[in-house]
Amino acid sequence: MEDLNKHNKISQFRVLFVVVAIILAVVTFIYPDQRTINTYARAILSLLVSVVVGSYAFDRLRDKKWLAGSAYAFVSVLNLLIFIPIVFPSIHF
């Protein structure tokens, strides 16, 4: 029973992040000319995608599905590499 409750909370967590990510994506399309709003929305969107995909990677690695877990982890790290130059523009990769 605890495992089912834990799974339900993780699903609610992911759905919340996906809803916030959709709202931020809409904000970037509504205000394309406002540089600060667009920059922060893109940074937060990249971070949220990284967190959601990272939680999937953690679940897959915990279930010993190594290929799927590694792919999700790789995508999560790539999203973090997108997040860093948005927030700190003086750092170049």
Results as ranks from 00 to 15, higher is better:
V19M: 09
K6M: 12
I22Y: 02
R35V: 15
F88M: 07
G54D: 12
Q12P: 00
S90D: 01
L78N: 05
L81P: 09
S90T: 13
R35S: 13
V87A: 03
D3N: 12
Y40L: 13
S11F: 11
L4Q: 14
S55L: 12
T39V: 08
L24C: 06
H7P: 10
L24K: 06
T36Q: 13
L48V: 03
F83Q: 07
F58D: 07
T36H: 14
F88P: 01
T39H: 00
S76H: 02
V52K: 01
A71I: 13
E2V: 09
R14K: 08
L4H: 07
S55I: 07
V53Q: 10
Y31D: 05
I10S: 05
S11V: 11
I23C: 14
P89R: 03
F29A: 05
F13C: 12
F58I: 10
L81I: 10
L24A: 04
V75T: 12
T39Q: 05
L47H: 03
N5E: 15
W66I: 11
D63L: 08
L24E: 10
R14L: 11
S55E: 14
V77F: 13
V52L: 11
I23T: 12
A21G: 08
K64D: 04
P89K: 06
R60S: 05
F58H: 11
L80H: 10
L81R: 14
T36V: 13
R14F: 11
V20Q: 00
V87D: 00
